[in-house]
């Protein structure tokens, strides 16, 4: 079986500073794979490179084809959708407009659009309630739902999620993770970048730990959860 996403020796630099240094990872179709690590480890940079927002060295293959030379929009059209850490919503536009624009890559399919919209409203009833409200007036949790909903409107095959739990109350984090796990059942694969290590590993099949731009630990999510080196990394400990 070929991987849906296969990154080999990826390097990303901002000017002279190399934020991602030789990262390799792979994700099989139908999997949730998580990349965890502290702030400044290069997680967001890695996602930006996978998405084509930043130029990268190394090979990134998606669905068996090299992504080099494809711009962000072409990747979106192929079903690669990113929910960025900063959400990047159209704040001055309504919730409904944000969602409709999420399907821009499939704009010719008007009928599909309606059905998809209903699906997303079904997934996030809160968004349906607020469909006429401008996105800028939403609360943090609602914004995260809208960002996720907008990405789902693009019919992703692989969803890249950057810190979906960031700054959200525990109840909403739980809700978001419930939805993420539910998505896998519908055939969407997910690459989940998180600093909320436990929540991420509990939802994922496989995990990578990114530290200062390099992959340190990696392995099946369950094994990582029990690994003492992980809690040392997060809470500081004797091994540090």
């Amino acid at each position: 079986m070929t991987a849906l996403l296969q990154a080999d020796d990826v390097h990303v630099a901002y000017g002279r500073i190399e934020a991602v240094r030789g990262v390799s990872l792979s994700l099989q179709a139908g999997q949730i794979v998580t990349v965890i690590g502290p702030n400044g480890a290069g997680k967001t940079t890695l996602l930006a490179a996978l998405m084509g927002l930043l130029p990268a060295r190394g090979r990134i293959a998606y669905d068996g084809a090299d992504l080099a030379g494809l711009d962000v929009e072409a990747r979106v059209e192929r079903g690669l959708c990113l929910v960025p850490e900063r959400r990047e919503l159209f704040t001055e536009m309504s919730v409904a407009d944000n969602l409709v624009l999420g399907a821009y890559a499939h704009r010719r399919d008007r009928a599909g659009l309606r059905a998809r919209l209903d699906e997303v409203y079904g997934l996030f009833p809160r968004l349906a309630e607020r469909r006429g409200q401008s996105a800028g007036t939403l609360s943090g949790g609602e914004r995260q739902m809208l960002a996720l909903g907008r990405a789902l409107m693009g019919r992703p095959r692989l969803l890249l999620l950057d810190e979906p739990s960031l700054g959200l109350a525990p109840l909403i984090v739980r809700e978001i993770f419930r939805i993420i796990t539910g998505l896998r059942a519908t055939g969407v694969s997910i690459l989940l970048v998180e600093q909320n290590a436990r929540a991420a590993l509990e939802s994922a099949d496989y995990g990578y730990v990114l530290e200062t731009g390099q992959i340190g630990l990696h392995g099946p999510a369950g094994a990582l959860l029990g690994d003492p080196r992980l809690s040392a990394l997060y809470l500081g400990g004797e091994t540090g």
Binding site: S165, P170, V173, R174, F177, N196, A197, R198, A199, A200, E202, S231, Y234, L235, G236
Partner: peptide, 16 residues
């Protein structure tokens, strides 16, 4: 602080 349950939850995540 290291032993504080609330801190542990805030840091490692308390979804479980």
């Amino acid at each position: 602080i290291r032993a504080d349950a609330r801190v542990q939850e805030a840091y490692l995540g308390g979804v479980a």
